[in-house]
Design a protein around this nucleic acid. Structure first.
Lengths: 129, 129
DNA sequence: TACAGTGTTTGACGGAGGTCGATCACCATG
DNA sequence: CATGGTGATCGACCTCCGTCAAACACTGTA
């Protein structure tokens, strides 16, 4: 399998602000990501089998990458539970997160996740409610 | 949506033994099926999020329809648990069952389920172990 | 009728995980 | 430095569900 650089955000594909001067905030150190290709089918299904997490994914599917912080989601759970669900989605390779000042921005790993589990993300994104 | 005949096995597409003389065994009365189109994404994902149930689906993907009874699966659980998992898969529209003498034969609802949840079944069937 | 084979149902148990309030850590701004 | 905003962590609670043994139900055969 194609080996990926482990310690690299290797994400956005955004021609972003020159990352040279932005030494990764302190909080971002605890941010461990998992590439979809390293995720088992069980973990992927278990992650998406929760209605709150699917709501996050759907909401994330309606906005551009890195445009939505964790707190801006319309969820009927406490922020502790919210934080837990984001961690699960991140470790299942569904989303990617990046710290921008005090808040944590999110991005759906559309192409990578779809490459690992074809059609799965589309099912969630096309879910009605 | 296309309304389906509710009280019809509407299944096998097998040019079978003339069903005229076979008045549906007594046990088959408790056999309630759910068409994949009537299954929510949540129920579908929840059904396939269990390793034992995925093992059943995979094993069922390697044999022809109606060729495998519940007891012939290689599962490391008791027959009570086994029976439970088959019921979950049936109510999730993943499998269809039919009584043949003392045993219950199974069939994977490939086309119907794939029409309702494109790619989902393929993911499970292509799972390695 | 009796028996063996197959599968379901029931009741109980235990663990996994979703949930919350409280607390803590980090960031920006005044 | 103090404050408010955002998010993570901790500990506890509780529900759900996977699990099993036991008992039951149905089928075919002797």
């Amino acid at each position: 399998m194609n080996v990926r650089p482990a310690s690299n955000t290797e994400s956005s594909s955004l021609p972003d602000k020159p990352v040279g001067r932005r030494p990764v905030s302190q909080r971002a150190r605890g941010l461990s990501h998992t590439h979809p290709a390293d995720v088992s089918l069980h973990d992927a299904l278990a992650a998406l089998a929760d209605p709150v997490r699917r709501a996050i994914v759907r909401e994330l599917g309606h906005v551009p990458d890195w445009s939505k912080a964790c707190g801006t989601f319309d969820l009927a759970v406490s922020k502790a539970t919210r934080s837990h669900h984001f961690a699960v989605l991140r470790q299942a390779g569904v989303i990617e997160q990046r710290d921008e000042g005090p808040r944590r921005l999110n991005r759906l790993r559309r192409t990578e996740f779809d490459a690992a589990f074809p059609g799965l993300l589309a099912l969630v994104l096309s879910e009605s409610s």
